[in-house]
């Protein structure tokens, strides 16, 4: 399937507003069947329902709108915890979970996210009720300027989900999709290891 027809499918279905819970393949099949003019379908904004941090949010997007843009500038109120740094999948500052899997939201078209639960950094905890990973980032000083921190927090949650017993080398591999300029890496690794130890001792692992 071409990228073009994929886009058309996704937006059409999203516009219909009925796709929460169905698979992407179903969405595309449905849109192909709809047979609307491709030119029309590729133009303009349409409403999309996405599930962010457990809440259904309606957001007006274009086919080209990335999930990152949808979160930061299209939603009202916006969710600005997720950061834009490189815009091309090099740095991981925009990392969110989609269907529980870490993804670069700058490389993900919003229209492909209908029916796929999204978790952003805000979804893991709040300053008064932080997740174990967020707490460990504070305790170990896994941040300096903090601009990469939301992406690292999400990536660390995902890494410890995928590889709960990862050794240091494996942790570095798991976190290699994220860049930090201040040089917080050693303390980020310490934070991840502190969470591992805590969870191994029976911590709740929020």
């Amino acid at each position: 399937m071409s990228r073009r027809s994929f886009l058309r499918g996704a937006t059409q279905v999203a516009a219909a507003g009925s796709m929460i819970g169905s698979s992407a393949a179903d969405e595309m099949a449905a849109s192909e069947a709809a047979g609307a003019s491709e030119v029309e379908a590729l133009r303009g904004a349409s409403e999309l329902e996405i599930s962010v941090n457990g809440k259904l949010r309606t957001v007006e997007v274009e086919p080209r709108t990335t999930l990152l843009q949808a979160l930061r500038t299209h939603m009202e109120p916006p969710l600005t915890g997720t950061k834009e740094v490189c815009g091309m999948g090099s740095c991981g500052a925009c990392t969110v979970l989609i269907d529980g899997q870490p993804a670069y939201s700058c490389l993900t078209l919003a229209a492909t996210c209908a029916g796929r639960p999204i978790t952003t950094v805000e979804g893991f905890g709040s300053p008064d009720a932080m997740s174990d990973v967020q707490q460990a980032f504070c305790d170990k000083d896994g941040m300096m300027c903090g601009f990469c921190t939301p992406g690292f927090v999400v990536a660390t949650h995902a890494a410890l989900e995928r590889a709960p017993e990862a050794d240091l080398d494996e942790l570095k591999y798991q976190l290699s999709g994220n860049l930090c300029r201040c040089g917080t890496y050693p303390h980020v690794f310490e934070a991840a290891q502190a969470v591992q130890e805590d969870r191994a001792r029976g911590g709740e692992g929020r």
Binding site: G81, T120, F137, P150
Partner: peptide
Amino acid sequence: PRVDGPVKATGQ
């Protein structure tokens, strides 16, 4: 621990 750690770690 830095006093703005919690707001940074939670995206606030």
